[in-house]
């Protein structure tokens, strides 16, 4: 952990922390904890079987060095094959099947889900998170940063209208695919406040490798305040920058609620400045990175769908002022 933190500090791309390290082995939800302990049990059993079997191979093949080669009796051979080849695997099958069904039911089930409804949309190549109310109406839309209340079991509706993606936040839950024409459900229940990284796990094209997101778990009160703030439209304080935003075409793809910008192809930017990262959790959200992302998008992410724009310097500054005002 310490080494990891050092590396993170040293890195020019350091994100908000390094809770994300450890993945499956650093569970932060009851589901992930169950699966991690299942993994450890299976790993220990596997190591045991590997050592016994390879031990038998090596001992058996070298016995002759101690004397004349001799064949073990038919009965002993049968016993060996039945014990090692039938009984032991049978035991493993029963254990795997029963634990799989019981744990699978536990971690995939709703289990009295009481958290928010969130629609997760896989895009090329970023994530949209739509927070819904009980009637399914959209309350707030954000991108690449999923906020969850601690101790509540959030309900995620996974959908895609392009290719297949897979939502994977290893510290919280196993992955589930986003498949066009299909709605999959997933439950996420963080136990402690923290920030973790997640990533698309199903190969989805050019920028699959950097299609990341950040999960932020916070106490229910903080979460409610965050959600209320995200639901607010933007109040324009930087009209010059907004004009540039319109003029160079940003508004064709991006929405900023409270302005005329209502494009639907790119991420909703209404509260861009509140997010920790840019470009699907690839670079930290700072003024410099924002400028770099706009002017040399494809150096950072070759193949990304966003066209890069190089405005006049004063326009760029106005634009950055505007984007930084989207709190």
């Amino acid at each position: 952990m310490r080494v990891c933190r050092l590396a993170a500090v040293a890195s020019a791309f350091a994100l908000a922390g390094c809770d994300g390290a450890g993945g499956v082995l650093a569970p932060a939800s009851p589901d992930a904890r169950l699966v991690a302990s299942l993994g450890w049990w299976m790993f220990a059993s596997a190591i045991f079987v590997l050592i016994v079997t390879l031990g038998l191979v090596l001992v058996g093949a070298n016995l002759h060095r101690r004397g004349e080669p001799r064949r073990i009796s038919f009965r002993a051979s049968v016993l060996l094959v039945v014990a090692g080849g039938v009984a032991a695997p049978l035991l493993a099958i029963v254990a795997v099947a029963i634990s799989g069904v019981v744990i699978g039911d536990e971690v995939e089930g709703p289990g009295g889900a009481d958290g928010p409804w969130i629609e997760v949309r896989g895009e090329l190549w970023w994530w949209e998170f739509r927070y819904l109310d009980e009637d399914g109406e959209v309350v707030a839309v954000t991108a690449n940063e999923l906020h969850l209340p601690v101790g509540r079991r959030a309900r995620l509706r996974l959908v895609s209208d392009n290719v297949i993606h897979s939502f994977w936040a290893p510290n919280l839950q196993g992955k589930t695919d986003l498949i066009p024409g299909k709605v999959n459900l997933l439950y996420a229940e963080p136990e402690t406040p923290g920030t973790w990284r997640g990533q698309c796990a199903e190969f989805c094209g050019l920028q699959h490798g950097l299609m990341g997101f950040v999960v932020v778990a916070e106490p229910p009160g903080d979460f409610a305040r965050w959600l209320a703030a995200q639901a607010e439209p933007h109040r324009v304080t930087e009209p010059e920058g907004l004009a540039v935003f319109d003029r160079i075409g940003c508004a064709e793809c991006h929405t900023v609620r409270g302005t005329s910008a209502d494009g639907e192809d790119g991420p909703d930017l209404t509260h861009l400045a509140s997010r920790q990262t840019l470009a699907a959790a690839t670079i930290p959200n700072s003024r410099g990175n924002l400028g770099g992302w706009i002017t040399s998008t494809h150096t950072i992410k070759p193949g990304a769908k966003m066209p890069s724009r190089i405005p006049e310097p004063e326009d760029l500054h106005a634009l950055l002022d505007f984007l930084e005002s989207l709190e």
Partner: peptide, 12 residues
């Protein structure tokens, strides 16, 4: 082969 474990390591 275990469903819950595979959902963690699948495609990794």
């Amino acid at each position: 082969a275990s469903v819950p474990f595979d959902r963690q390591v699948h495609d990794s």
